[in-house]
Amino acid sequence: MSIVHTESLTKVYGDVSQPIPAVRDVNLTVEEGEFLAIMGPSGSGKSTLLYMLGGLDKPTSGKVWLRDSELSALNDDALSRMRRTEFGFVFQFFNLIPVLTAQENVAIPLILDGVPRARALKQADDALARVGLADRTMHRPTELSGGQQQRVALARALVTTPAVILADEPTGNLDSRSSDDVVQMLRRAVDEWKQTLVLVTHDSRVAAFADRIIFLKDGKIVDDNRLKGRGNADQIREQLSKMVLS
């Protein structure tokens, strides 16, 4: 079942005399429970597309639906409410509030939504435990490693059980090992916690975790690639053995 879909989504920067198209006429459907990776060279419009999906950026033309709601029809307050209840965001630069503890950072969307503080903090603890940071709830962002910070950000995205989690280069600022941890966590969010995830990355190894990869070039989708489990693990094993034995 589709959860997000776009219709002729277009974003043009610059003025009328010198339009710079970032996203052109994109029709995309994200299925519920899907792990979708958006790839493309820099300047291909992949981040812009993601922002428009999450209501962070307004399309120049075209529409984005989250289930039955058309985002551009919403006013700023309604869109803000949507962002704190229906979307979860994970960004490249973690974007945690430096003066808040991990727990409070995670609780922020709930608190902004008016959840009583005690309950919000309790839920934040649960979310932090899910990303393996149960023992770091009272730490400030500066006291956490990059990977840990990103997991806090992930917990913040998870805490509201949003309809869609949108992640923009979540591993872009991490070393390989931390990057792997974070992507594993994202994969678990889809597999175990039944989240829908849209991720922008330029890292093939991160994209390989996804169920589906779309490629953007010059603001257009040039390939839509569903990765099927072919169940040929044995074949890979054999190939790898050959690799070793060659």
């Binding site: 999450g54 307050d77 949507m82 974007n95 509030i97 969307p109 902004l112």
Partner: peptide, 16 residues
């Protein structure tokens, strides 16, 4: 602006 933008991104309204 980063922190404020982030708060907006996770759903803070202008008034908040």
């Amino acid at each position: 602006r980063h922190d404020l933008g982030m708060l907006r991104a996770v759903g803070a309204t202008r008034r908040q």
